[in-house]
């Protein structure tokens, strides 16, 4: 028997043109993040141009930075940090948030109340401020960044998953499963999770965008990825001096961030309603 993959066509979903283009852009960045070292024309740390803030030329496709390093190579390598850190953070945040949200909805009672109160308190700290304070306290490194970003965006994922799960929890089949004597673990894995997967994935996409924005913001303030490594936010920070000449060194990393976040946002906006609001 032939293998059957769950392609969009088989499941009866169709993506419109804008959705397809944005999916392609987001996918391209993901692929670049993986294969960046084989794409770079120069080493990301090598000083190759005698001029600083060089213009776009045949030799340097995206100009050169404040030390005369090749911008294209630096952006390509930066993709790894921006996409990698954000992806790790969003996976941790959504996994924790969704598991806690589902268990809170299923168990209810005091467990739910205390968890909700605590996580709500966490959301009433502005995200950028929280990042700033913690990174100032512990110092910046990639694991710390991933952890902080994950903690900041867990409450949102929790709230979203809990709200969806509470609705599912009142369905007859959940009551039936309860009456059969199923445990919480079974309930959340087999009854709740399959019914909230679509919206949760869409929410994860949006959360990914927020994390990319926050990470870039922190890096821009000098608290994110530390030199000699640099993500897109730090690239903008390093080359902010080029702003008054309008050199490509500061514009290009900004465009990279914008293409990634806008494409993910548009992709989520154009997802078939069937996936996005399955539980509605």
């Amino acid at each position: 028997m032939a293998m059957s993959f769950p392609t969009p066509r088989r499941l009866g979903y169709r993506l419109n043109l804008v959705g397809m283009i944005s999916a392609a852009v987001a996918l391209t960045w993901a692929v670049i993040a993986v294969i960046a070292p084989w794409l770079t024309p120069y080493g990301p740390g090598e000083v190759v141009d005698f001029d600083y803030f060089g213009p776009i030329s045949e030799q340097f496709w995206l100009g050169s930075d404040y030390l005369g390093r090749d911008m294209l190579s630096r952006i390509l390598v930066g993709t790894r940090y921006t996409v990698g850190i954000s992806l790790a953070a969003v996976l941790i945040a959504c996994f924790t948030g969704v598991v806690l949200g589902m268990t809170a909805a299923v168990i209810g009672g005091w467990y739910d109340t205390i968890l909700s109160r605590f996580l709500d308190a966490l959301t009433s700290i502005p995200s950028k401020l929280f990042g700033l304070v913690v990174v100032a306290g512990i110092g910046s490194s990639i694991p710390v960044l991933i952890g902080v970003l994950a903690v900041i965006y867990t409450p949102g994922a929790y709230r979203f998953a809990r709200a969806l799960s509470v609705n599912i929890n009142t369905m007859e089949y959940v009551t039936a499963a309860r009456a059969r004597g199923e445990r919480t673990l079974y309930l959340i894995r087999h009854e709740i999770l399959p019914n909230i997967t679509g919206p949760v994935l869409a929410d994860m996409g949006l959360r990914f965008v927020f994390i990319v924005l926050l990470l870039s913001g922190l890096s821009f303030l000098g608290l994110g990825v530390q030199p000699p490594n640099s993500d897109w936010g730090s690239l903008v920070r390093e080359n902010i001096g080029a702003l008054s000449f309008g050199a490509p060194a500061v514009i290009m990393p900004s465009i990279a961030i914008a293409t990634l976040t806008i494409s993910v946002n548009l992709l989520i906006d154009n997802l078939p309603v069937k996936i996005r609001d399955r539980s509605e």
Binding site: G217, V236, I240, S244, I251, S254, A258, N265
Partner: peptide, 23 residues
Amino acid sequence: VIGVISVPEFLVATLAVLVFAVW
């Protein structure tokens, strides 16, 4: 609006500087 929401604040600031101060 979607454009502004999905880019970091510093990018909006950078663009504002480019448009109003540089060009």
